[in-house]
Simulated scan of single mutants.
Amino acid sequence: MPENSSRPQVLLQLLDDVPEPAYAHPGDAGADLVTRVDVELAPGERATVPTGVAIALPDGYAAFVHPRSGLAAKHGLTVVNAPGTVDAGYRGEISVTLLNTDSTMPVVLRRGDRIAQLVVQEVARVEFLRAETLPGSHRGSGGFGSSGGFGTAAP
């Protein structure tokens, strides 16, 4: 398939000799980020891990750091503030705060291991308008658990 020249362009600076973010498969939403250091996370431990890359996003875009599903399912590894947000104006190294949720096994990562996914999305900046009341909606003020789920039978 030919390159799509209408794709937004993101400037990338490699801060270390590590693989640049890359999409593993056609159609993937997230580009893989790797660790530039070795790290071992004991059960319940977290660490902020550098990726060796910095980016310059176009205005109107943000990048979101998501956990890798395989690491979560197989090792209990997740991103603490998922998704982490990289704003268009940020120019520093992208780091990922990882958490080992496994209760018994450590997670060992080696330099170059894929640790997270970077999803770039167009975002809207809005104007916030104060209001004394808000218009009604189907959901209303129902929040955490208001739509059912765990322990509720389907109708």
Rank of each mutant, 00 (worst) to 15 (best):
G145M: 03
V10Y: 12
E127M: 03
P83E: 10
T51N: 10
A56G: 07
E20P: 15
Q9C: 11
G44I: 09
G60Q: 00
F144N: 10
V126F: 12
P43Y: 09
A82R: 06
G52C: 02
M105S: 14
V49F: 03
P106A: 04
E132Q: 11
T101C: 11
L14Y: 08
E93I: 04
A22W: 14
L134Y: 12
N4Q: 14
V37W: 07
D102E: 01
R130P: 15
A62C: 11
P106H: 01
P83F: 05
E45D: 07
V107I: 12
S69K: 03
L129T: 14
A31N: 01
D113S: 07
S103P: 10
E122H: 14
L71N: 09
A116N: 01
P58E: 04
A31R: 03
P26W: 09
T35N: 02
P21H: 12
A56P: 00
S95T: 15
G60L: 00
G27K: 03
P106W: 00
L98M: 07
T133V: 13
G151Y: 07
R36A: 04
I94P: 03
D87M: 08
P67T: 09
D17L: 12
V79N: 08
D17N: 15
G149L: 02
S5I: 13
R91M: 06
L98C: 06
F144E: 08
T97W: 00
G70S: 15
A72C: 10
G136P: 04
E132H: 05
V39C: 14
G76A: 04
G27Y: 01
A88H: 15
G143W: 06
D102W: 00
L71P: 09
N81H: 12
P83N: 05
F128C: 05
G112D: 00
R91H: 13
L99Q: 04
H75F: 13
L33V: 03
S103G: 13
A24M: 08
A47K: 15
S147F: 14
Q13S: 15
R91E: 07
P19I: 07
L118W: 01
T35L: 00
L77C: 06
T48H: 02
L15W: 08
I115P: 00
G89S: 09
L118N: 00
Q13G: 08
N100M: 05
N4P: 08
M105G: 06
T85V: 15
T97I: 08
S147E: 13
G112H: 01
G148T: 05
E3W: 13
A42M: 13
